Computed example of a mutant assay.
Amino acid sequence: MAFGDLKTEKGVKALNDYLADRSYIEGYEPSQADVTTFQALGKAPAGSFAHALRWYNHIKSFGSETSKFPGASAAAPAAASKPAPADDDDDIDLFGSDDEEDEAAEKIKQERLKAYNDKKSKKPALVAKSSIVLDVKPWDDETNMEDLEKSVRTITCEGLIWGQSKLVPLAYGIKKLQIGCVIEDDKVSVDWLTEEIQNFEDLVQSVDIAAFNKI
């Protein structure tokens, strides 16, 4: 029975497939054909070739008794021995190209994946912001609104940008400061901001949110 070169994975696979529904190389009992193939194999097949490994261990268990197997002792099957090169075409590995193609495809895949991850890591994350308009009310009409606004704008921190402001009449000559700002939601709390403004107790009576919009 010809299996090809049993020193190669292809040859072992052919042997494994052959033994899928057979116990021996020839017939229903061990023979010199088993001995010849066993010797050509040289070592136990990998566990992935279950049928060939079963057969190998079975023949190996006979030890020196294999010399008593029926049949003529012979060299390894002709097809199992490595053929002498006939011409340059015989040196071409027709079965190795698949592995090389798989390796090339995997390399391209990994390069594309790396390029995608690099591009994704450089993309700026979306920052959640809010636009707020605050109504800052003084105690009375004698409050210096210029000083009040200057005090409010002294409140600074990362993620806070003050915008335009104006004075809006309330009643009895009293005006409130209406001032806008933009905050980064993860860095600035609205509650914190209003509390900071109200800390100017001599100038500020109260702080209300006139408008609040997500950007």
Rank of each mutant, 00 (worst) to 15 (best):
M1W: 06
M1A: 12
A2Q: 03
A2G: 00
A2L: 04
F3W: 01
F3K: 00
G11Q: 00
V12F: 04
K13R: 15
K13C: 09
N16M: 00
D17H: 09
Y18T: 00
Y18P: 02
L19T: 05
A20P: 01
D21I: 09
S23T: 14
S23G: 15
Y24H: 10
Y24M: 06
Y24C: 06
I25L: 07
Y28A: 14
E29D: 08
P30E: 02
S31I: 07
Q32N: 02
D34S: 09
V35G: 01
T37R: 03
T37K: 01
F38Y: 15
L41T: 00
L41K: 00
G42C: 04
A44S: 12
A46N: 13
A46R: 13
S48I: 12
F49R: 13
F49G: 01
A50G: 09
A50D: 11
H51K: 14
A52K: 05
G63S: 08
S64M: 09
E65L: 14
E65N: 12
E65K: 15
P70K: 02
G71M: 04
A72Y: 09
A72T: 15
A72S: 14
A74E: 11
A75W: 07
A76S: 11
P77S: 00
P77V: 02
A79R: 05
A80F: 01
K82A: 14
K82L: 14
P83W: 07
P85G: 06
A86P: 01
D87Y: 02
D88V: 15
D88I: 15
D91N: 11
D91H: 12
L94S: 07
G96I: 06
D99C: 03
E100A: 14
E103N: 10
A104K: 13
K109E: 13
E111T: 10
E111H: 08
A115V: 06
Y116R: 15
N117G: 04
K122L: 12
K123H: 12
A125G: 14
L126N: 11
S130E: 11
S131R: 12
I132M: 07
I132N: 02
V133Y: 02
L134G: 03
V136F: 02
K137P: 00
P138L: 03
D140E: 07
D140G: 10
D141P: 04
T143L: 05
N144Q: 02
E146F: 09
E146L: 13
D147F: 08
E149L: 13
S151T: 15
V152F: 01
V152T: 00
V152R: 04
I155H: 03
T156W: 00
C157L: 10
C157N: 06
E158P: 00
G159D: 02
I161R: 14
G163D: 05
G163K: 09
G163P: 03
Q164L: 12
K166C: 10
K166S: 13
P169K: 04
G173W: 04
G173E: 02
I174M: 11
I174Y: 06
I174L: 10
K175T: 11
K176G: 09
K176H: 04
L177I: 10
L177W: 06
I179D: 06
C181F: 03
V182S: 05
V182H: 01
D186W: 03
K187A: 09
V188Q: 01
V188Y: 01
L193G: 02
T194S: 07
D202H: 12
V204E: 01
V204D: 00
S206N: 13
D208E: 15
F212N: 11
F212V: 00
K214D: 11
K214E: 12
K214V: 12
